[in-house]
């Protein structure tokens, strides 16, 4: 079964002057469980829009969206939130964390919503932090006391501890220096290989494109290239 199935997905926005903009234009796409896929393309080519549609944050103007067997276009806002909580992990470019919560509290937030016990939350977060190389002394710091790279790792930890089928990452390394970005990417790839979690990135970063096993290139909202580096 495919984890993600898009059929003829189109997203049209109205810009400020009410002129329609085709952010995504008739995209057909299938992504299997366990893939490590990057979506590349110039700025404005529709990468973020596509990820948001896959994550149910945005609705396509037309076309079908199935993720983990669910038809997202048919779900209410509440059901979509529930779907994200139970099947997805989201990582954005920056400011992923809730400012008033510590690293640990941020990482366990989805578990809290899922109703996981305090004991188990603590064990899972601790283990995930260890695997991602987040030092124990960072656990009780707030986001503004963490470096950008540390914050991104906490965001990855938050996504991973909830055991999602799919992690969507919109330019997760764009705000990091190349060394930090590379370390983060290695960690994500490791998780993909070890736990079989599906990853879909959007990126401008050649380093990310290199490590992706599948590289999809968008231009003007259309897929212009789809390469599998197996």
């Amino acid at each position: 079964m495919n984890t993600v199935e898009l059929s003829r997905v189109t997203k049209i926005y109205q810009d400020k002057n009410k002129i329609p903009v085709k952010a995504v234009d008739g995209v057909d796409l299938e992504i299997q469980a366990g893939e490590f896929t990057a979506i590349a393309g110039p700025s404005g080519s529709g990468k973020t829009t596509l990820l948001n549609i896959i994550g149910g944050l945005d609705k396509p103007t037309s076309g079908g969206v199935q993720v983990g067997g669910q038809d997202l276009t048919a779900l209410s806002r509440d059901k979509l939130a529930e779907f994200r909580l139970n099947t997805l992990g989201f990582i954005f470019q920056a400011y992923n964390l809730i400012p008033v919560l510590t690293a640990e509290e941020n990482a366990e937030f989805m578990l809290l919503l899922q109703g996981v016990s305090a004991q188990e939350r603590h064990t899972r977060v601790k283990q995930e932090f260890a695997e991602l190389g987040i030092a124990a002394e960072l656990m009780h710091r707030r986001p503004n006391e963490l470096s950008g790279g540390q914050q991104q790792r906490v965001a990855v930890a938050r996504a991973l501890v909830s055991h999602p089928q799919l992690i969507l990452a919109d330019e997760p390394t764009a705000n990091l220096d190349s060394k930090t970005g590379s370390v983060l990417l290695d960690k994500m790839k490791e998780m993909n290989e070890k736990k079989g979690v599906t990853f879909i990135f959007s990126t401008h970063d050649p380093m990310v494109m290199q490590r992706a096993r599948r590289l999809i290139t968008l231009k003007d909202g259309k897929i212009v290239e789809d390469v599998n580096h197996r």
């Binding site: 994550g55 944050l57 806002r77 509440d78 939130a81 529930e82 994200r84 909580l85 139970n86 997805l88 992990g89 989201f90 954005f92 400011y95 992923n96 964390l97 809730i98 400012p99 937030f109 989805m110 919503l113 938050r158």
Partner: peptide, 16 residues
């Protein structure tokens, strides 16, 4: 606003 967007992205319902 951004924080609320993040919260929704990680599964918090709009009514929550």
């Amino acid at each position: 606003t951004r924080e609320f967007g993040i919260m929704q992205a990680i599964g918090v319902k709009p009514k929550q």
